[in-house]
Design a protein around this nucleic acid. Structure first.
Length: 839
DNA sequence: CAGTGAGCGAGCTTCCGCTTGACTT
């Protein structure tokens, strides 16, 4: 029997550590925090020293019960939660709920899951650091007070279900400001001049040398005059400069750099990266994936060096120790790396193998030699101009080093040509001009954020933590808030001028290019802008990008034991709360209202604003202009329109909707803008117009196409026992509808090509499953024992309750069928206390 | 699902940070 219980946060970690420690230790996990402030109300007593009301959250009751049982069976408990503020607090909460003494229980920490690190930690137990716990409490309570008070304010002043908080509101602000920068950006054209020369080497071989003018020319006239000066001029090499250069590999992955590289190289969203990484971690292939540290364990560095030597030879080995210097980094874990570097590949699905490969390469590269390059700059003189107006650059890789394995990618792949190898050249050598081109280019606005780029910015500002990056991005895009959307947008065609000098002649021509096309970029919605502006107007301090960094300093002082947490929270809260009260009483509804002009027909004011329903709309007739019982005219804003950019003309056109387009199949076809977006109406059937298509531009042909598509999609694809089978796409993917039954279509079938026979099989399987679904049911199926994938479980309203395991024996369907309603109620009551309270 | 846009008040929503869960319309 084990005499010791060691508690960590993650169950996967617990498994590994249990193996290392042997039979004297039972290792269990807390699954993160076990207590929190309940979400029903604010649960902080602001009148009495901000006393928090912590409760064991519903999803942790089972965990806590199991830990309590485990504590009873051992002589000693070791708290081995992560070594950071949150980890310390988890240990303290564990003391509270498990009845352990917070002053004497053994607390140990380690940053890496290796035998030596853990065994060393066991020899150096310390006590709980209650100052650090206090710092966490201050953090938690400030976040609760800010979040709940600001959210409540938004419900009153903008719309229900909205939210605001220290992290999310600033995150939205970043997206809003970037969009405004882009809107305000004025692209200016300029000209870039490139030239091609014939070069003859000593052995008579002819090759081409590409050169360009380092200067930009701001007008076509200036570019043309440069070209004119080159007509009939002589060119020769004034100078050749050869410089050695080195490139260093990037540090091993942290959460945010993994998210960025997976986004750039694999096209993953941040949540997809984290999901796949979680699977790799659980399978034991990689170390912990939520980390802000670039540190590798000494053991890992040694084995990586060995692996590099085996694969590429010792010249490629260069071990490095990376320091993290990001604001607010807490470094409780290692960098993300393969647990066994010798696993060059791992089994798994495509996502897993690709993400693993990325991690393996980055880790290996981080311990490899620098790449050695030779950069050559050739200055070219023109006889009609002073100096060296043209320049050629070349780059030769002398030693590949880490580039053999891995090259970090960039967000903005600029139009810069990849520099290649130059032909052999000599100073003073004359050059023979082939052609010269001046191409019109345009300055570019800053790029919209990708999810990963936004995370990177948050990390740079010290806002949020590795465990919250992905959830924060999801949160600001979630339906009820809808502050930000991720979209693809088509670009616009733009013309540019080209001047070519060839055979002594200058010719002008025109090229065209697509500009501004983006994929998977973040755009603020009107709601995002309205809420950001409102919060910024009243809460500059909280919306400041430095706010988090500022209070983090206070939390550090608390952690050092030099300040009382209650005072820190109070110093912040009292003025903050007063501002909230003031805003509640004095500020008007936030609508982002903008006056567009006058309606030429009625002469009344045309304005655009956010409505009470959270949808932006155009309104004709302001309050003052309308008679007592008269109503303003309204039209919803269309797709690709926003409060900030819509013009008077576009706004007025919206009032031409709904409009009839004609007839199709004997029924009227019309278009309109509904509550859920633009639609085509065909008789009584509504068809949504896909995003990006402008309903105002809709032609009857396109509308008919959409109607036909809809009819095809709605048409039954066959029958089963005389009942129609239809197909559709739902929230959880493609499904078949058969009577009242919804049947998921597994990924191996394609919805377009699925056969009626396959449908019959799926329906039969579903009917069989449905017949076996219930073991017992009570109270109109509100309470039932159902057969799940892993055996029977109890469904209690929306909750699922597992049967407690007795002596490792799992409940079977046969035994479950014998349980009485009273038995079942007792099991539910044990798992979810208070479920059957009398009213 | 495919008109409501105001304001009132019932009762609902909401924060950040630590973890994995295991249901299927």
């Amino acid at each position: 029997m084990a005499k010791n219980l060691l508690i960590v946060e993650s169950p996967a970690k617990a498994k590994t550590i249990e193996k290392i420690l042997g039979s004297d230790f039972t290792v269990k996990s807390s699954y993160g925090h076990v207590r929190d402030l309940p979400k029903e109300d604010i649960s902080v007593d602001v009148e009495h020293d901000f006393k928090p009301n912590y409760v064991v959250t519903a999803d942790k009751q089972k965990v806590v019960k199991e830990l309590k049982d485990a504590v009873k069976k051992v002589d000693e408990v070791w708290l081995a939660t992560d070594e950071d503020r949150e980890g310390e607090a988890i240990s303290w909460h564990l003391c509270q709920v498990l009845g352990l003494d917070e002053h004497s229980t053994k607390r140990i920490v380690f940053h890496e899951i290796t035998k030596s690190a853990i065994q060393l930690a066991i020899t150096q137990p310390r006590k709980l650091d209650l100052n650090l716990v206090d710092a966490q409490q201050a953090r938690r309570i400030v976040d609760r007070l800010v979040g709940y008070e600001l959210s409540g304010l938004l419900w009153k002043k903008v719309k229900g279900k909205l939210s605001a908080g220290r992290v999310q509101s600033v995150t939205v602000r970043l997206v809003v400001e970037r969009e405004r920068e882009i809107q305000a950006f004025e692209t200016t054209p300029f000209f870039r001049i490139t030239a091609e020369f014939n070069v003859k080497s000593a052995d008579g071989k002819v090759s081409v040398l590409k050169a360009e003018s380092p200067e930009r020319y701001d007008t076509q006239d200036n570019a043309a005059s440069f070209l004119k000066k080159c007509v009939g001029a002589a060119f020769n090499i004034n100078n050749i400069e050869v410089k050695p250069a080195k490139r260093k590999p990037a540090a091993p992955f942290t959460t945010s750099t993994l998210q960025q590289e997976a986004s750039r190289k694999l096209g993953f969203s941040v949540s997809r990266t984290m999901l796949v990484a979680q699977r790799l971690y659980e399978a034991g292939f990689i170390t912990y994936m939520r980390t802000d540290s670039t540190n590798l364990s000494e053991m890992a560095i040694a084995s990586i060096a060995q692996e590099i030597e085996n694969l590429y030879g010792s010249r490629y080995v260069h071990t490095r120790r990376y320091k993290t210097s990001k604001a607010g980094a807490q470094e409780a874990h290692e960098a993300i790396r393969p647990t066994y570097i010798t696993n060059q590949q791992i089994p798994g699905d495509r996502d897993q193998t690709r993400l693993y490969e990325l991690i393996w390469k980055r880790t290996i590269a981080s311990q490899m030699s620098e790449a050695e390059l030779e950069r050559t700059i050739v200055k070219i003189g023109v006889s009609t101009m002073p100096g060296s107006p043209l320049q050629a650059e070349g780059e030769v890789l002398k030693f590949d080093g880490f580039l053999k394995v891995y090259l970090e990618s960039q967000d903005d792949d600029d139009e810069e040509d990849t520099k290649g190898i130059l032909p052999p050249l000599k100073v003073g050598q004359p050059l023979d001009l082939l052609d010269m081109t001046a191409t019109e280019r345009y300055t570019r606005p800053p790029a919209r954020y990708t999810e990963a780029a936004l995370v990177s910015k948050l990390e740079e500002l010290g806002i949020g933590r590795p465990s919250t990056y992905a959830p924060t991005i999801s949160k600001i895009m979630e339906e009820n808030r809808g502050y930000v959307v991720k979209e693809n947008r088509d670009g616009e065609v733009r013309k540019y001028a080209i001047l070519t000098l060839k055979d002594g002649q200058i010719k002008t021509s025109e090229g065209s290019e697509v500009t501004g096309a983006v994929k998977n970029r973040l755009f603020p919605t009107d709601m995002g802008m309205v809420v950001t502006d409102y919060l910024f107007e009243h809460f500059k301090e909280i919306m400041d990008f430095g706010f988090t960094a500022g209070i983090e300093k206070d939390f550090d002082i608390i952690a050092e034991g030099n300040k009382n947490w209650v005072k820190t929270v109070g110093d912040f809260y009292h003025p903050f709360h007063a501002t909230v009260q003031n805003a509640l009483e004095t500020s008007a509804r936030a609508t982002g209202e903008r006056i567009l002009g006058k309606d030429p027909e009625t002469g009344r004011t045309v304005l655009v604003r956010m409505t009470r329903f959270g949808k932006p709309a155009v309104q004709i007739g302001s309050k003052e202009e309308l008679a007592e019982d008269e109503k303003a005219k309204f039209a919803n804003l269309g797709p690709n329109q926003s409060i900030e950019t819509v013009t008077l003309e576009d706004a007025l056109r919206l009032f031409t909707l709904p409009k009839s387009l004609g007839e199709f199949q004997g029924k009227e076809v019309s278009i309109g803008l509904g509550r859920f977006g633009p639609y085509v109406k065909h008789g009584d059937v509504f068809v949504s117009i896909p995003r990006g298509e402008d309903p105002l531009e809709m032609e009857i042909e396109r509308a008919n196409e959409l109607i036909k598509e809809k009819q095809l999609a709605d048409a039954p694809i066959g029958t089963y026992k005389g009942i129609d089978i239809t197909k559709g796409k739902g929230r959880f993917g493609p499904f078949l509808k058969y009577g009242d039954l919804y049947i998921n279509v597994p990924a191996k079938h394609k919805l377009d090509t699925i056969t009626v026979e396959e449908c019959h099989k799926l329906i039969e399987a579903k009917i069989n499953k449905e017949a076996n679904r219930y073991v017992q049911r009570w109270e109109k199926e509100e309470i039932a024992i159902e057969n799940g994938r892993w055996g029977p479980f109890i469904r209690f309203k929306k909750n699922n309750v597992s049967f407690p395991k007795t002596e490792g024996q799992k409940m079977t369907s046969e035994d479950a069928a014998k349980l009485s309603f009273e038995d079942v109620k007792a099991i539910i009551e044990a798992a979810l206390p208070g479920s059957f309270k009398k009213k």
